[in-house]
Simulated scan of single mutants.
Amino acid sequence: MTDTPKFLLVDDLEENLLALEALLAREGLELHRASGGDEALELILEHEYALALLDVQMPGMDGFELAEIMRANTRSQHIPIIFLTAGSEDAARKFHGYEAGAVDFMQKPIEPTILRSKSSVFLDLFVQRQQIVAQRDKLVALTAALKAADLQKNRFLGVLAHELRNPLAVLSSGVALLELPMDDLDTDDVKKSMRQNVRHMTRLIDDLLDINRIEHGKISLKKENLDLGEVLPHALEIAQPAIDAGDHELVVNLPDEQITLNADPARVVQIVGNIVGNAARYTPNGGRIEVTILNDADHVILTVADNGVGIPSEQQSIIFEMFGQSDNVRGISGGGLGIGLALVKQLVELHSGEIRLVKSVLGEGSVFEVRLPQSR
């Protein structure tokens, strides 16, 4: 948003200032008055002016001296100056005025039509300059956003390649082992590892597809009245491989009363499974993950707390953005693509709910809270 254009009127006579105000007043223009050079300089320090109209013959600092000071100051040197004088109209005087930095020299008594016409030119130039500056700033911001998006895209492709290459390597090795003619080969562990990596790849691809569906408005919820206590075990089952891999302690706190939601059961499973799975992946081995369900008036509150790596304070604002992984979790094996929480946020909001990061401390862990409306 641009500032309202302003003119500076400088004259030691009050009646002259009133006359200039009457001539130049219009909607969308501010007129600031100064009765001398010192007062004018104070105003210049506070405001940006589209035009300055200076009386030449003022006691103390005259108009020429004021113009010279303005031209010597980087803040005011660009302000167009029109001199107003009741003195003689000789060439030397005009030369002095232009040398001091004037763009025009008008003789009193002022012709109203000419003054309005000339001032309108400088007003239009000022407005155009403001528009150009605003457009420039938008282009700078857009360029920065495009660079950030390009960097984010490249980082995402690198993470995607890493996340897909590792399970593919396991699958390739598993297939090679199963093809070996070894009667004593224990294939159970090989098959288990292969199944785990297939699940991991499937989860990544499903998340990508869901994000695409949501962004194109192609995802629909199949809501029904459900008991959260019955759905929760299925959600925790999704995160169980990551919990087992990290040898974590999982603590679940449920209220005694039944908790009923009007929600899509598959999406609730996905929401809880993603958050708990994230906590498991970003918590060092032997950690603790606590899932708590509470009733709060019209909402159900799900809290997931861990004692994992935590999120730096300066990066906590981006974790719900697409590919918004924190720097200190990048490179963790199986850390995902950085879309899990972005997907969870969109699924929660589709249910008219809210997700937030309650707190996170580096080296101490994080606490996430999801609020979903109860069914009526």
Rank of each mutant, 00 (worst) to 15 (best):
R165H: 14
G101V: 07
D124A: 13
S317D: 15
D210F: 08
A144C: 08
G308S: 10
L232I: 06
L350G: 07
G36M: 08
V159Y: 05
Q57N: 15
A242G: 07
L177P: 02
L13H: 13
N166V: 15
Q374K: 15
A102H: 00
D206T: 14
D206W: 08
L13Q: 14
N212L: 13
A22D: 05
V370A: 02
Q240K: 14
A239N: 07
F64L: 10
R267L: 15
I301T: 04
S360V: 06
L24S: 00
G310W: 00
N328H: 10
E369I: 05
R199V: 09
H96K: 15
E369M: 10
L146R: 12
A144N: 12
R33Y: 03
H216V: 05
I44H: 00
A100R: 00
N295C: 12
K222R: 13
S88Y: 09
E237H: 12
D183F: 10
I132M: 12
L20W: 03
I259D: 00
L250P: 04
L53K: 00
P5V: 02
L294F: 06
E369R: 05
G60I: 04
D55I: 04
G37D: 00
E290V: 15
T292G: 06
R203Q: 11
L341V: 05
G338D: 06
N285W: 11
Y282A: 00
G63H: 02
E215C: 07
Q315M: 06
E290F: 07
M58G: 02
E224C: 07
L66F: 01
E111P: 04
A145M: 12
A40I: 01
L294N: 15
G365K: 01
A100V: 10
A86Q: 05
V309H: 04
D3Y: 04
G28V: 09
N253G: 07
N274V: 05
L261G: 01
V304A: 03
G336P: 03
